[in-house]
Nucleic acid binder design. Structure first.
Length: 367
RNA sequence: UGGGGAUUCGCCAAGUGGUAAGGCACCGGACUUUGACUCCGUUAUGCACAGGUUCAAAUCCUGUAUCCCCAG
């Protein structure tokens, strides 16, 4: 029997998860802090010295332990390396190898934090798992469903990374930071535990990749050989040589190592021909987006065209669009105005007012 | 080895006597729970080289080198 007063909190040792745990404790929950061991890499030794890590700092076990002690809750460091490697790291590498751009945080949320960790929570008898995400989750009578609503701290809103959560998961998830009006308010509370920690920076890269060098990471851990190939323009004309498709993502401008007297951007990546297509600023805009693996939160299934807003990357303002159901669970999104750099592999997330409608993985237009 | 033109930061390029624009690339920083984008900043004591004229030259003169074009 699961205890509804019992909650497992994923503790990174950072500001957000610390305050989340503290708030729950204050609300009277029986809180258990768990630090997830996710990845080991000899290059990661000092990474916790550089970043707060927010959700997924890897080496802050000691911070997490100390904080739990101060809050007065039990603490465990548990091994999640297996799931993490399979569902996040391998996915990450494979995505790049097939010419797309992964979003590891979304995968981690889906498979690790709200699946593996939730399962662990249940094993410990806890009904809930909680995190320091900036988002609001609750049961909405109007929709007769669990819903995800944007955080009050709109600048820190993290609902984008949560679109994959199912009703089953949402039922068991608490996000106490959703009501906070700002990160500053959260930091203030964190200050009482550990001054140094409350000042930790927000900066964040891919948590398992040292030095922002994801290319080196894939070279060390990937299976495929990275081969140079041709840069071509949108008409197929060869412009130069690229260093391997994993180095590029749609919309990228810097690091092409080739000059044209005007800014040039990656417009597309053609894995089959090992080519990277370049174009000018105008050529990187488009109104249509196709997505698969869609999950809807506000309703069960998309059955007819639906007017809403959507964003195609984490840090973007939602733009007006209409979404259309296609066959095999695909969704076609048509924006009112062109969007910049629609990138296969990234997520498109739909919103209606402050509610998260759903989302999916961006794919290239089906032929 | 006749004539003409060129040579400015890694690349493109402005500057025609008054004390080296700009773009791209690179590098650094900000922003960011992904990758990108964006923003800010740094970057040639020196204009192929050697002399000369001038208060003052990348800009004028002389010579040298390299490249391009036209003639043999």
């Amino acid at each position: 029997m699961l205890d509804k007063k019992k909650v497992v909190v994923g503790m990174s040792g950072g500001v957000d998860s610390t305050v989340a745990a503290y708030q729950l404790k204050k609300m009277g929950y029986d809180v258990i802090g768990i630090n997830m061991r996710l990845w080991q890499d000899e290059f990661l030794e000092d990474i916790h010295l550089m970043h707060d890590g927010g959700c997924c700092s890897l080496s802050s076990v000691e911070d997490a332990r100390r904080v739990c002690e101060q809050i007065g809750i039990p603490f465990y460091a548990l091994d999640f390396k297996g799931v993490f490697k399979e569902t996040v790291v391998d996915y990450f590498i494979e995505a790049y190898e097939k010419g797309t751009t992964p979003n590891p945080c979304i995968a981690c949320n889906k498979y690790v934090k709200f699946d593996a960790l939730l399962e662990k929570a249940h094993q410990l008898g806890a009904y809930y798992v909680a995190t320091g995400h900036y988002a609001k989750i609750y049961f909405d009578e109007g929709h007769s469903r669990y819903v995800i609503e944007k955080s009050n701290a709109i600048k820190k809103d993290q609902t984008y990374a949560l679109y994959n959560l199912t009703q089953d998961q949402l039922k068991h998830v608490l996000m106490p930071l959703g009501e906070f009006e700002s990160k500053e308010a959260v930091r203030e509370i964190a200050g009482q535990f550990d001054v140094a920690m409350s000042r930790k920076s927000d900066s964040q890269e891919i948590c398992f990749v040292p030095d922002q060098d994801y290319v080196g990471f894939i070279n060390r851990n990937g299976t495929k050989e990275i081969k140079p190939g041709a840069f071509v323009d949108t008409s197929g004309e060869v412009l130069g040589e690229h260093q391997g498709i994993i180095n590029y993502t749609v919309g990228q401008r810097k690091g092409l190592g080739i000059t044209f007297g005007k800014p040039m951007y990656v417009v597309d990546i053609d894995v089959d021909h090992n080519q990277v297509v370049l174009g000018d600023n105008q050529e990187v805009f488009s109104r249509e987006v196709y997505s698969t693996l869609n999950n809807f939160v506000l309703f069960d299934e998309l059955r007819e065209p639906f007017e809403c807003e959507a964003k195609i990357r984490y840090s973007a303002k939602p733009s007006k669009c209409t979404i259309y159901p296609l066959e095999n669970g695909w969704v076609k999104t048509v924006f009112d105005s062109p969007e910049r750099a629609i990138t296969p592999g990234q997520a498109i997330v739909f919103y209606k007012d402050n509610w998260l409608v759903g989302g999916g993985t961006i794919e290239r237009k089906p032929q």
